[in-house]
Nucleic acid binder design. Structure first.
Lengths: 156, 156
DNA sequence: GTCGCAATGTTATAAAGTAACACACATGTC
DNA sequence: GACATGTGTGTTACTTTATAACATTGCGAC
């Protein structure tokens, strides 16, 4: 996340879009779920469920149970507001909720950032490769580990 | 896995190739590691570390500790003899060790099978998409969830 | 043989995720 | 307004997955 990045605005924006989407769908973005979404976005990086749980406990004073967080995350993932990064056991805010979310990530091992991309070439190559083998795609997952641009420039 | 599939031969073959590869590299495929590799292959499906641990305990009579299995798996993954399926927290034998292993899987939610593929189109699309964003790819992970051919044909 | 190092064993613990059941609270119905 | 209903949340306990720290074994080089 660059210093130029207006992160506060970014969180607010995500919450606004989430409100709109859930209203539109008749899904209930409760206070708790909204708060968890905010905490997911708070770092702009993938965060573990237990990290979010800690925030919830410390910042809000109430000692929540793991299930509380997991249930909220489950809802948010279902609504496409949050993605789960399988290879990190962590969650990250969806950059473009509402749009088709293809689940493609460039995960930097240097800074921990996970850039969501939606590359049509990757998507169609996967569908084609699957079709060739008679496989019906339901949920493609692409998590590319490596180094982002800025982490390559300042090695170690 | 089809009934036509000669699974015994398949395991034996995997072990033979592993022996050859490790000898070639000067890597030590010890009895334990070889046994774990065999157990990974035993189902031809992704298996959890603790499932392998149970096999080891029950079939071999010795109550092994988790670390024993995890260390063996770590070695096998490093050598490219086994892949980890992130979205399942499970391990599966590599179909083509020695060759470039691109880590692409078609994971069937019906039967649990994980078919390893090495689709050049998918691979190059990922590299291209990453390059476009200045991202240096180290380890691409593609895990496509869906239904394999035979599971589509017999629904439920 | 014995030194050195890699592999394995042992014990304990951390991290991630789920099950079962009780309670709270909004909404619609009467 | 009481009440039924269903969804969301709280609570407790537990399972599964994974790692840390340190002791011991055993192989190969010399």
């Amino acid at each position: 996340m660059s210093a130029l990045h207006d992160h506060t605005h970014c969180i607010a924006d995500a919450l606004t879009r989430a409100d709109a989407l859930c209203t539109e769908r008749g899904a209930r973005l409760t206070a708790l779920r909204r708060r968890v979404l905010e905490l997911v976005w708070s770092s702009h990086r993938p965060r573990g469920a237990y990290a979010i749980l800690e925030d919830l406990s410390q910042q809000d004073g109430k000692a929540a149970a793991p299930l509380t967080v997991y249930r909220a995350l489950e809802f948010l993932v279902e609504q496409g507001l949050v993605h789960r990064i399988e290879s990190l056991n962590a969650y990250v805010g969806c950059a473009a909720p509402g749009a088709a979310h293809s689940g493609q990530f460039l995960v930097c091992d240097g800074c921990g950032d996970a850039a969501e991309i939606d590359d049509p070439g990757v998507g169609s190559a996967i569908v084609a490769a699957a079709a060739e083998r008679g496989f019906h795609v339901q949920r493609p997952t692409v998590e590319v580990r490596g180094l982002c641009k800025s982490c390559q420039e300042k090695p170690r």
